[in-house]
């Protein structure tokens, strides 16, 4: 039964997951195409200097900041919007399974897909960075991009919450909460500036993962 539920989730999101992964790989590739070009044209030492002392954040190129957010939004919509059409999610709730566990399994599957794509992108990013930069610059870059990927997870959990919520008034209120929370992950800051905030941001993101249960509960209750 569980396998079938996960397979159903996979069928819903697979193309969107592939598109997100492909877009992410293209963006990372484009970033390092630019790095390679700048290395050639402005000399390696000047390029390092611009990163270390002049605030050049090479990883911000190609709007990389918004790629995890967009990917998560698309995957969450692909996964949960079909469930609201004709209230199909109720079919899942009628299965001989614990309803909360079924919802959590759906959410964990989506989150796992996001995590897998994030891992691919981070490994690719780190590997390519290693060709041009020493560990200090790579570490700074990874700390700086970490909130963007956490933002992706937050957007995924909040989108699931909003899409599954049956009452429009509540949807709007959740949207307001999302609008206050998401910018916290996307502040313009110096490299490594996010390092003290990262542990708390991780806690928030993990906590938000169970928020979806509340919408599921209201759906089951038949709130209109």
């Amino acid at each position: 039964m569980w396998k079938s539920i996960l397979y159903k989730e996979w069928l819903k999101i697979r193309w969107f997951a592939f598109i997100y992964a492909a877009l992410g790989i293209l963006v990372v590739g484009n970033i390092f195409l630019k790095v390679q070009h700048d290395f050639e044209f402005s000399q390696a030492e000047n390029y390092w200097y611009s990163i270390l002392f002049q605030g050049n954040q090479f990883y911000e190129y190609s709007l990389f900041k918004f790629v995890p957010l967009l990917g998560a939004l698309v995957i969450a919509l692909a996964q949960y919007f079909p469930e609201t059409v004709n209230k199909r999610i109720k079919l899942t709730f009628h299965l001989p399974l614990n309803e909360n566990k079924a919802l959590l399994a759906m959410m964990l599957f989506g989150a796992f897909c996001l995590l897998a794509i994030a891992a691919v992108l981070v490994v690719l990013f780190t590997g390519l960075s290693g060709m041009y930069f020493p560990s200090e610059i790579i570490q700074s870059a990874l700390i700086s991009v970490a909130p963007w990927f956490l933002c992706g997870f937050t957007v995924y959990f909040l989108t699931a919450l909003i899409v599954l919520e049956p009452v429009w008034k509540y949807r709007f209120l959740y949207l307001l909460v999302a609008a206050t929370l998401v910018p916290i992950y996307l502040q313009t800051a110096a490299a490594r500036a996010y390092s003290p905030a990262l542990p708390l941001l991780i806690v928030f993101t993990v906590l938000l993962s169970v928020a979806l249960l509340f919408s599921g509960y209201r759906f089951r209750k038949g709130e209109m």
């Binding site: 909460v177 906590l207 928020a211 979806l212 249960l213």
Partner: peptide, 14 residues
């Protein structure tokens, strides 16, 4: 718990 988390999140954001 999920309800409390939502309230907590709203408090933080606001």
């Amino acid at each position: 718990i999920s309800r409390y988390i939502l309230v907590f999140t709203a408090i933080i954001g606001l």
